[in-house]
Nucleic acid binder design. Structure first.
Lengths: 218, 218
DNA sequence: AACCTATTGTTTATAATTTAACACATAATT
DNA sequence: AATTATGTGTTAAATTATAAACAATAGGTT
C-alpha cells in the first residue's frame, strides 16, 4: 500500500502549539497530562488533540494519558527539531535584523550562517558576529556552503530574484517575509510571513460588527 | 431577522490577499478582471473568489467581470481601510523596531502614536520621530490618548501584563508578537504573529516526506 | 483478585469549507 | 437586431475538518 496519507495543513499548524504548551508543562515539572486537561489549557477539543496526535503514533496510554516529556520529544522529532539547519538571511533591514537577533531560533537548531544585503551602508556591519555580506556574493556562497533554509527579508520587488537564486542553488525551503507570493518549483517549500495581511485581518475583525450593522440598516 | 451571518475566518484571511492582488492590477492599469483570470493569478478557484466576494455584496457584472478599481476600494472598505487607527507599540526590541519602521502601515492608515519599553538604554532614543517612553507611563498615556490597536513586542513573560493594561484602558484590538497566547475578554480581538510557529511549520514540511518514509520502513 | 475509573485510539456523526453546476444577465459580434 | 460569448450570483454536491461516541485497555482501589 503506497504512501501514507499526508497530514493536512490544519493539523500541521497546530503542532508547534502543542510543542509550545508541552514545553511549558515540562518546565513546570508536570509529568503526565490527559487530552482533556491539555484541551482546557490549549483551547482545542480533547477529541481533536487525540486525533491530531494519532496521525503520528500511539503516544498515550489508556487510563494514564500522555507522558509530557516523551510527547514533547516526539513532537519535536515530528517537527524535525532533532536535526540541525543552516540558514541564511537576505535583507538586513529591520525585519532581517530582527530575525537574525532572535536567538531562540538558534536554540531550536536553526543556525544562521550568513547575512546578505545590497546596501553599501550595511555591508561590513556585524550582527551577532556575522558580517553583512554583499548580496552579489550570495550565489557563490550558496555554492560552497550547504544551506537548508533561505530567509527572504528584502523588499517585494527583489524577493523573486532572491528566490530564484535560492532555487538555482538547491535550497528546498524558503521563509519569506516579503509581501509577495514567490514562484518556485513544486519541490521547494515556501512559508510566508505576511505582516500586512495579519494587520488587515485584525482591522477587518475590529470593524466587522459595524460592517454588518450598516448592511442591515439600508 | 436578527444578525447577518458572520464571515468565517477562512474567508477573512483571504481578503488581504485579494486586496494586494487588486492593488497590483490597479498599478498595472488593468481595468477589469474576471474571477477566472484572477483565479489564475491568485491561485484560488474562480468559484471560491465569486463566493468570497458575494459575502459582502454584488460587485461583479455578468459578461464583464469586476471593475478592478471599484473592487479594490470595496475590499479596502471591508477591511476597514477607509478609517484611521491609532496604535502604540510596547517593546522596542528588534521586532518592535521593525514594526515601527515599516512605513507601509502608516500608508494604510495605521498611525503610530508612541513606543514604550522598560529598558533604560532604549528610553529616550527616537524611532521615526517617536521618543521611546518608559513603559511605566503606558497606562497614563492610554488614558489621555485614544488608541485603537495595541502592539505587543515584549518577551513572552511580560506580554500578559501589557495585555491587561491594554484591556483595562479600553483597547479592543491587540496585535501580538510575543510567543504566547493572551488572555483577554471576548470583546477584545487578538491577532497573533508567532514567528516560531511559522518556522516550525516550515521545518515540519521540509521533513515530512522523510518522516513517513521511516514509518513505512519499519 | 475483582472491580471500578480514567482515558486512550478509533469509528461514526456533524459541521464547515470548497468545488462544481447552472440559470440568467450583460457584453461583444455578426 | 438577433445571436453568441462571457461570466456573474447562487444553489447543489463533494470534500475536508471537527466533534461526539464508544469499545478497549491500563491503572488504581477495595
Amino acid at each position: 500500500m503506497g504512501k501514507k496519507t499526508m497530514i493536512s495543513m490544519a493539523v500541521v499548524r497546530r503542532l508547534p502549539k502543542y510543542y509550545r504548551y508541552l514545553g511549558e508543562l515540562l518546565r513546570n515539572d508536570v509529568e503526565r497530562i490527559s487530552s482533556k486537561e491539555l484541551s482546557e489549557r490549549i483551547g482545542f477539543t480533547a477529541s481533536q488533540i487525540r486525533q491530531d496526535l494519532n496521525n503520528f503514533g500511539d503516544f498515550g496510554q489508556q487510563g494514564y494519558g500522555y507522558n509530557v516529556r516523551a510527547l514533547y520529544e516526539e513532537i519535536g522529532k515530528i517537527l524535525g527539531l532533532n536535526k540541525h539547519y543552516n540558514t541564511v538571511i537576505v535583507g538586513a533591514g529591520n525585519i532581517g535584523q530582527a530575525v537574525a537577533n532572535y536567538t531562540n531560533f538558534e536554540r531550536l537548531g536553526f543556525h544562521l550562517l550568513a547575512i546578505f544585503d545590497r546596501n553599501p551602508k550595511l555591508i561590513g556591519i556585524s550582527i551577532r558576529d556575522k558580517v553583512i555580506q554583499d548580496v552579489d556574493n550570495l550565489e557563490e556562497f550558496l555554492k560552497s556552503n550547504h544551506v537548508d533554509i533561505g530567509i527572504i527579508c528584502v523588499p517585494k520587488e527583489q524577493a523573486q530574484k532572491i528566490a530564484d537564486i535560492f532555487v538555482r542553488c538547491g535550497i528546498k525551503a524558503i521563509w519569506n517575509f516579503a509581501p509577495t507570493d514567490l514562484n518556485v518549483p513544486d519541490d521547494v517549500i515556501v512559508e510566508n510571513v505576511h505582516l500586512s495581511e495579519s494587520l488587515l485581518t485584525l482591522s477587518y475583525r475590529l470593524n466587522e460588527a459595524e460592517l454588518f450593522k450598516e448592511k442591515i440598516g439600508r
